Computed example of a mutant assay.
Amino acid sequence: MIRSYLDNAATTPIRSEVIKVIIDTLKYSFGNPSSTHHSYGRKARSIIEESRINIAKIINATPSEIIFTSSGTEANNIILRSSILDLNIKHILTSPLEHSSVLQTVLDLSHRYKIIVNFIQLKEKGGIDFNHMEELLKKNSSFKTLVSLMYANNEIGNLLDVKKAFFLCKKYNAYFHSDTIQFIGNFPIDMKKNCFDFVTASAHKFYGPKGIGFLFVRKEIIKKMRPFITGGFQEYGIRSGTENIYGIIGLSEALKLTSFDFKNHFNKIKELKFYCISELKKIIPDIIFNGFSSSFEKSIPTILNFLFPTKKDHLLYFHLDLMGVSVSRGSSCDSNVKKMSHVIKSITSESLLKKMMPIRISFGIFNEKKDIDLLIEALQKIRK
């Protein structure tokens, strides 16, 4: 059966070159990277530090600003929880469209430590209301504040106007954290040109292995952070535990390979998205795209989200899968929850959601036009 995988925002296929590097490391580098008194341990340690240097070079950071984690979710947790415990943050400013690893953590922190939490109002299609953001920053200027806003939304692809966010954070002396998990590895980013204090990334979003991610922390801030996981001195003492050297080298290799060809990847995926939009409009003339996902200026090309006219049927995605098409309704982290996505509910009226279902299509470098053709054919059958 011919299949079309269009759920790259959930996870991407691993590149064959990355698999080879991981297998070679599994075979020949079994030493504990903390056992540096012999060559086996030193070899493992060198793999980690060379990977750290490679990653830092690609995102224009210093190696000491990179901390490896088990996932993007863990990275977000370390930043948010450490900000409260180590940076004396008393006020967190975020949006209703953030990933659950941010929203649930923020709510947990507000209960545990009585932190003030404010949510920035949304403009049409889920854009951030920067006037409201400034009002909240000004109102709470007596408190140390952390602003947490994702660079590219994982469900609707909306891009944050980071320049405006940087300006306001600097104006009100707030720390700025950005979940860049859908961005880093797919598009170029420069830590020295951008004013992020913290960012997070996950290897399996850019053709690397699952179970490995990293966080970037400005070097002047990392000195203030105490251990998040205790029991050793790995990862500059922030995250104890024997490092996942196979995941780390896989992450590094995947990031290196995508960085070689950012421009061509961008152009290819942009063309796929344009083709998909035009084909969808042919079969659904009154189609409603969610957020700015159909915009080439305000969203990332990898994500397209729209409402499909059908009765509220959570088997829609299962029917598509039976026809060989893999898509999703939103974040994979919430896929076991039958409730409608909090992102879609935040930007869509209840009346629409009673008669339409959201579909998230996410493109990758291994997709071709034939994948979209299969999707269109399957949607036509369901409509009939």
Rank of each mutant, 00 (worst) to 15 (best):
M340I: 15
K193Y: 11
E98A: 05
D261R: 14
S331R: 03
T348W: 11
I92Q: 03
L146N: 01
A61L: 06
H342C: 13
A174C: 14
F318Y: 15
L6A: 07
I47P: 00
V217F: 05
H204N: 15
F68Q: 00
E253H: 11
I115R: 05
S16C: 08
T69V: 14
I359K: 06
T145I: 04
L6T: 12
H37T: 13
D86H: 11
Y113S: 10
N88D: 14
G126N: 01
V102I: 09
H91C: 10
G41K: 00
E65Y: 08
K281C: 09
M340T: 13
A165N: 03
S335T: 04
G211F: 05
F214D: 04
S328T: 15
L379Y: 01
K163T: 14
R218N: 05
L137Q: 00
G364Y: 14
R15L: 15
G247M: 08
L122D: 00
T36N: 02
E253D: 15
I361E: 06
K144W: 11
L122W: 07
Q234M: 02
H99T: 10
R360G: 02
V147L: 09
S83Q: 07
D179Q: 02
E49G: 02
L80F: 04
I248H: 09
G126L: 01
K219S: 14
I365Q: 08
N140A: 01
Y113D: 09
G291S: 10
G127K: 00
P13I: 05
N118W: 06
I382W: 03
E134I: 00
F318G: 12
L272H: 02
T348L: 10
L307A: 10
K354E: 14
K223A: 12
L320W: 14
K90D: 11
K282L: 05
S142I: 05
G211S: 05
S362F: 15
C276I: 06
S29P: 02
N8C: 13
I359H: 13
Y236H: 14
N194P: 01
G72T: 02
N264Q: 13
S64F: 13
L375P: 00
G250A: 11
S34P: 09
R42P: 00
F308M: 09
M356P: 08
I365C: 11
F274S: 13
N88Q: 12
S240H: 10
C195A: 11
T36A: 00
S326W: 12
V117R: 01
N244L: 07
G250T: 13
R42T: 01
F166R: 01
N140E: 03
I115A: 04
F233G: 06
I248P: 06
F306R: 05
R81V: 14
I78L: 10
I382E: 04
K273E: 03
S64N: 15
G330Q: 00
P33C: 07
N244E: 05
F366I: 15
S349P: 15
P63R: 04
I303L: 04
K256W: 12
L136Y: 02
K339P: 08
S51F: 02
V337Y: 14
K355G: 12
K298V: 00
E253C: 12
D286W: 13
D86K: 13
L26P: 03
D24W: 10
E50V: 12
N186W: 08
S110D: 09
I382R: 01
V325F: 14
T11Q: 12
L353G: 13
N54W: 11
Q380Y: 07
K268I: 05
T36G: 01
K282T: 04
L168R: 04
G126E: 00
